[in-house]
Design a protein around this nucleic acid. Sequence first.
DNA 1: AATGCCAGTGTTTTT
DNA 2: CACTGGCATT
Length: 747
Amino acid sequence: MSKHPLLAGLNPQQIAAITADLGPALVLAGPGSGKTSVLTRRIAWLIQEHHVPHHRIMAVTFTNKAAGEMRSRVEKLLDSKLRGLQIGTFHSTCARFLRRDAQILGYRDNWVIYDSDDSQRLIKAIVADLGFDSKENPPRRINNRISAAKNEMILPEGYQALSRFDERVARVYAAYQHELKISNAMDFGDLLLNMALLLKKSDERRKDYQDRFLAVLVDEFQDTNTVQYQLVKLLSAPQQFVFVVGDEDQAIYRFRGADYRNLLRFRKDYPEPAVVLLEQNYRSTQTILDVASAVINNNRSRTPKNLHTSRGKGEPIALHEAADEQYEADFVLEQVRQLRESTDIAYSDIAVIYRTNAQSRAFEEAFIRARLPHVLLSGFGFYQRREIKDLLAYLRLIYNPDDRVSFERVINTPARGIGKKSLGAFSDWVASEDLALSDALDKLYFDEATPLSTAVKGKILPFVNLLATWTEMAQPGGLGDLFQHIVSQTRYDLHLEKTSQHEDEALDRAQNLSEFYGMLMKADDSGQTLHDFLDERTLYTSADSLEEDDDKVRLSTFHSIKGLEFPAVFITGLEQDNLPHRNAIAEGKEGIEEECRLFYVGITRAEDHLFLSYAMQRRPFGGSSINGTSQFLADLPTHLLDGSPLTLAYLRQARAVAAPTHWEPRHPIFERKPKSIASGNQAIRSQFATFKAPQKPTLRVGSRASHKQFGGGLVIGIDPDGDIVSMSFDEHQLKKVFAEDLTPLDG
DNA sequence: AATGCCAGTGTTTTT
DNA sequence: CACTGGCATT
């Protein structure tokens, strides 16, 4: 059967995965093990061999870019266009489904998506409306709580408040959802949550989706959170032809509620899944792999793996100590030059990876000075700029006149003499009658009786009239024109000049606007409507649209580099408190283990050349800080490193001195028997048959229990199986945890 | 209502 | 250092 063209050149494990029977399948794929090939060929296999129509397949990837790539690879394999094949991120997929079905949940068709900035603004306004002090109740923190709750599928009604702060969060959460609904808007969390609610609420719709999608495939399964896991479960029932790929060692989205133990839950929730382990690495040299293994082996919460490569030893890993971040940038610059001279590596073959977005600055400045082409894969994008957000708010308000956040953003930008007082009077009236914004504006427009003073009316009415004319002229293909009208009728150009500090700044911002205009024209050319444009800009990041052949060095965080590979990789900022980040250290072992995985993800991006660097001194704001080297450096085998003798001697010593890490061993996902991997699906399946179900303690809702890591808390919910328990912790957020990690407390 | 100045504060990571 | 928010002035 290995003669089948779809299986050509693949190893037995990969073939086992691709040809697994229809039914649940779990692929544990180490880095560089060809999992993208497996996923694309699995889709092609389903279509060709199992005759699953392509429009009845749904695949979920981590970025929109990966989705696009996957689609084109499958199309190439089958040599046909597959328009109905549903591939996208969880968010874009849900957005797409909800575009059709959101009315069932009470939204009007022109609902919009709020990004995190929009959510934060709304929360801030609500905190003020409720009379809470914004210092004691930072909107950002509340926002985090609310999105954590949404990830755990906890609705405002179910939000258990045990502390005073939580009580306020609960009230803000309820008001926030109300405002979102009235504004006809969903935030990122709502996209997932609403989709799950829809599937639970409407038997008819659930059946529709379940009937349509015979097969569901999920990439990066270790980074799914509760609501995503539930979505997969709901969509893949009842036939359960669900194929998931993941690697617990690459789980890096804990902060978003992701739990790599979903890999474990999968094994319990789906009957007898096929299990395949991909350990053969096709990407990196043995040296790079050895370093990666040395790093990740320090994590206890994992299944040991035996990554191996048929590639040669390769060159040693370069380790560089820089005096500060500028010298570090210079080091990277110099090495890039040398690589370009001595190898045929292109700029786009090189990645520079760092922990925090702020670190990109030193590199950007150095690259600009040296005129080296480079591009940022992550960071504060174009759309975050004030002038762009302003214009977007105008467009969004035209599309959805109920959008409170956009309205409040532009009602007095440029200044129209509508300050706190006037807006306050208006908002109070709207709130007191619980009006939708568009209804309130209509009442003004048609001069109906309102309790507003003539002064306030007189100020707002001209804006309402403008809005009405724009709404009338908004039509397909007219986005560019619309933009021009808005700018000229609001005199936004004058506003830019007035609010800029220097001429340079005004010029810069004007340039941004014309760039934005260009994008709208482009949208017009490709036939996009206002809603296409708005959806796309919220759900797509700049990295998604980056062309493969754009010959520029990639600058990126560890998170955004995931899934990619490069002949040459620089991992920078290897200082304690940076990697691991200080906040992660404060979270304890789980936090540090996740940082370790970040490092691992970074290392395993490299094919041939790997450079590690740290800076003795870094200047976060005005001051300066002296940092120690990252604790992870002590895990590196020094004989694989190439660095100054002094540095290496220091590391050797650090390694000898380092206290053995007695981290609590958690249950590995599968107990491995110490024999070598047999080939073929059946053999592997039996190999993992030793999996033991952990013991469940007896818990009941309302009782108290103590968690290994999070401490004491109140049991607020238990899954039907009794495996998963919702806990409201005294010292932590609401979380869902595994029952076996809890000890019941009496009283 | 708009502007301007000062103090304080903060930075993980992303859809 | 930058950016925000609060406060005083115009």
